[in-house]
Amino acid sequence: MPDLYTAKTDADKPINSVSPTKPETSISEKKLKIINELPVSTNPFSAFALNPSGVNFENQKNDETVLLLLRQHWGVNTAWILAGILFFFLPWLFKYFPGYYLLPEKYQLAVFIGWYLLLAAFVFEKFLSWFFNVGIVTDRRVVDVDFFGLLYKEISDAELDKIEDVTLKQVGAIRTVFDFGDINIQTAGEKANIEFNDVPHPRRVVKLLEDLR
């Protein structure tokens, strides 16, 4: 009676088969390959800058390379940009306010100047908040830089090999159409999770993190 199943023996293995245990050096070679394949981004306003030129951060190690710089998607800025444009033209409507012409001319001028100073501060503050609240992926770790208010900063980081889980959240039609979402990076130990909110191309970020881990 013929055998229904025959277990493979060592003799069946191909001669040039690769051992399943990878050598330690292959990880860094893999990273090096990823780094070399990344295109260089030169746009300083990019919300998704691969291999950004001229970008460094506090506490960066000498041999550490920034692979990805993330900011919130441009769409997030739409509200304050539109508000800024609206507020810019609003003084033209001042003449329709009955109380405005009761003021002496020099006080009208003071209101006018004060309005544009406030507008400049509003726009500049919003821009700073967008420009400097960044997420950074290097060849060693993930860094989240957050600024709250005027003089408060929070920098959290996690080594790539300490990352346990990466969760992507992309909810709603606008986020799906414009391809942006939230990424939650869970780390081992007591360190708080790292969150990148409203970042563009979240699937590419997750893919890069998976490749680097």
Binding site: P44, P52, S53, G54, V55, N56, F57, E58, G114, L117, L118, A121, F124, E125, L128, F131, F132, V134, V145, F147, L150, L151, K153, I155
Partner: peptide
């Protein structure tokens, strides 16, 4: 008050550009 705010803004920007160094 606005001038004081503008001064704090300069300090804030100094801190920010030290933390995240860019061409801008």
């Amino acid at each position: 008050v606005y001038a004081c705010f503008a001064f704090i803004l300069v300090r804030q920007v100094s801190m920010m550009i030290e933390v995240v160094v860019t061409n801008l």
